[in-house]
């Protein structure tokens, strides 16, 4: 009742007790991610879709005379990569959508350590998912390869690079989803934006940027290789276009009308996109109110 009894607690508040050090925030974010069902669902769907689509695609191609099983290795990811994107969006936007952000940011008022911890935790979870999804893709091409009597050698030529690219591709998509979710703070707008820039935009730009579509003379595209177009260039520089390059072989060469960035170049461009959106999310996190 009276202020006279206030001494013990008033005094104790000033003595140092451990605060939200970064390692602790990472542990907390890990607990939060693993204690929800949705990340596990996203991971399971990613792995299953990667395996099944790759299997179906390889089966379909196996009737071609020049069938090369490894060419089908990353086909499942064309669809399966949406899993990590959704996973990231759920982690990034889930806090704000549910109001859990009020709890989170009263515990860590500096806020940005939470985003950094989410990046680490999501990357780790996505890495596990990506390794399994890539393994499922490898399993997916084995039956068709066996039916044609071809042995699959993952150590040949650019295959190790391709496998690494596939894993990093899925991890990067999860981080891109996380960044979009954290920036937009709502699940549906973040998902729609993600689908637009990752799936739809590159298709539109690549199609419109094809020299044959944009009215170039087919004869002039002969010997010197296909010329690059502005739209084609934009297509590979778009988040989705750049990311897709990570799942191609270094020796595959560019799509018609696009510059040849290669898987490493594509990966770097996509990493830049992830970084840009993450920085925007971090700026918004620091500057704006949490409701």
């Amino acid at each position: 009742m009276s202020a006279a009894t206030a001494t013990p607690h008033g005094a104790r508040a000033t003595t140092a007790r451990p605060g939200p050090a970064f390692g602790r925030v990472v542990a907390a974010e890990g607990t939060k991610l693993l204690s929800l069902r949705s990340p596990w669902w996203a991971a399971a769907v990613t792995v299953v879709v990667a395996g099944v689509i790759t299997y179906l695609s390889a089966e379909a191609s196996s009737v071609d005379p020049g069938f090369e099983p490894l060419d089908s290795l990353s086909t499942g990811l064309a669809l399966a990569h949406l899993g990590p994107l959704v996973l990231g969006v759920l982690v990034g936007a889930g806090e704000f959508r549910t109001g859990a952000s009020r709890t989170t940011f009263t515990l860590v008022p500096r806020r940005w350590p939470v985003l950094a911890a989410q990046v680490l935790v999501t990357a780790a979870f996505a890495l596990g998912t990506a390794v399994l999804a890539t393994a499922a893709s490898v399993l997916g091409i084995l039956p068709s390869a066996a039916s044609r009597g071809i042995t699959v050698d993952l150590t040949s030529d650019d295959t190790p690079g391709l496998v690494l690219g596939m894993v990093l591709f899925l991890v990067a998509l999860a981080l891109f989803g996380l960044a979009l979710g954290a920036l937009l703070r709502r699940t549906v707008p973040a998902l729609v934006t993600g689908l637009l820039v990752v799936v739809i935009l590159p298709v539109v730009l690549t199609t419109a940027g094809d020299p044959l579509v944009s009215g170039a003379d087919p004869a002039s595209t002969g010997l010197a290789g296909p010329p690059t177009t502005v739209l084609g260039t934009l297509a590979v520089l778009s988040p989705g276009g750049a990311a897709q390059l990570m799942t191609t072989s270094a020796s595959a060469g560019p799509m018609s009308g696009t510059p040849d960035l290669g898987p490493v170049g594509g990966g770097l461009v996509f990493a830049a996109w992830v970084l840009v959106v993450l920085v925007a999310a971090a700026v918004r996190l620091r500057a704006r109110d949490v409701r």
Partner: peptide
């Protein structure tokens, strides 16, 4: 009361809170 993720159990919610401060 809606400052909790509805998909998380009470224990895990409190555990994650506790972990931030050891």
């Amino acid at each position: 009361a809606r400052s909790v993720h509805p998909g998380r159990t009470a224990y895990k919610h409190l555990l994650a809170m506790a972990q931030t401060h050891g």
